[in-house]
């Protein structure tokens, strides 16, 4: 079963249109949503959660239409939004008690163990938490009600590298159960590269690509060459390029590269940056 399916999903604002988005996340997998600020990552997650109204298309979560299955369907979805917003006067212990009354499947023991694991004080007010502590509390809540799908909007932002690594491992652990899945958006592409099975690129509201990560490495490559050599490449084959003092770096589908030209491995960050530049040119 697919954990998440977006079909022609669209949202229109006066000066920005998101979509139409078509995207599928199979159970047991992690999909990373990459995009620059304002690309529409948060809007996508809010549409999936029906926090904002869509202007077209459909969203299926764990096999059911999101509008039909909500709010009860949210029992199965763990969410970390870009801003974790509990009331400033509450402590982590109080948040736990509140959540016990919100989620039917609340697991108080799991919550307490996450608080310990993240070294979060139970009696300190949320107001006094650092940005990283707030994120960790959001993650602890998302992981403590036996969710099947995690929707994570910049969950590692504000965390130090050691904790980030631990959190990334936690998400990875989560999908060991084949009925679980994760959709994660982040600016920290290295985290996504480590974690994800699928990568989706969102650029100015358009989904430029959604592929298996390993398939991306196989299909795309970077050519680093002098300007004269670059001129011999069919412009239609160039998906994006960057000019440097030493020549040109161009993103190509490997199959479109001129015979004999050396095509290097592209990492996800480079792929995204070059593709976004290519998208801007079009």
């Amino acid at each position: 079963m697919n954990a998440l399916e977006l079909k022609d999903l669209r949202k229109d604002y006066r000066d920005f249109t998101l979509g139409p988005l078509d995207l599928t996340l199979p159970s047991g997998a992690i999909l990373g949503l990459i995009g620059e600020n304002g690309a529409g990552k948060t809007t996508t997650i809010k549409l999936i959660l029906d926090m904002i109204s869509r202007d077209g298309g459909a969203v299926r979560l764990l096999g059911r239409d999101n509008r039909e299955s909500f709010p009860l369907g949210k029992e199965d979805v763990g969410v970390v939004l870009d801003e974790v917003s509990f009331s400033e006067c509450l402590t982590a212990a109080e948040v736990g008690k509140i959540m016990r009354g919100v989620f039917r499947n609340w697991d108080a023991a799991a919550y307490e163990s996450y608080l310990k694991r993240f070294a979060l004080p139970e009696k300190k007010r949320f107001k006094e938490f650092s940005l990283g502590m707030k994120k960790k509390l959001g993650i602890a809540v998302a992981l403590s009600h036996r969710a099947k799908l995690l929707l994570l909007d910049e969950p590692t932002g504000g965390l130090d590298p050691v904790v980030r690594d631990e959190v990334v491992d936690l998400f990875s652990e989560f999908t060991r159960d084949e009925s679980h899945a994760v959709l994660i958006s982040s600016h920290i592409v290295s985290d996504l590269e480590k974690l994800c099975d699928y990568i989706a690129f969102l650029h100015k509201g358009r989904l430029m690509l959604c592929e298996e990560k390993d398939r991306l490495y196989e299909a795309y490559g970077v050519v680093r060459c002098a300007r004269e050599d670059f001129a011999t490449i069919d412009p239609a084959a160039v998906l994006g390029k960057r000019e440097t003092p030493y020549g040109v770096e161009a993103l190509l589908r490997r199959e479109d590269a001129p015979r004999g030209m050396d095509v290097g491995r592209v990492d996800i960050e480079e792929l995204f940056v070059l593709m976004a530049k290519g998208g801007d040119r079009q």
């Binding site: 909500f70 009860l72 949210k74 801003e83 009331s87 919100v102 989620f103 039917r104």
Partner: peptide, 21 residues
Amino acid sequence: SYDDREKWTVYVQAFPVSRAQ
């Protein structure tokens, strides 16, 4: 007003709570 200021009105929608509730 506190909920709105502290953005709980937005965050609560991530939980199984409808607007009507």
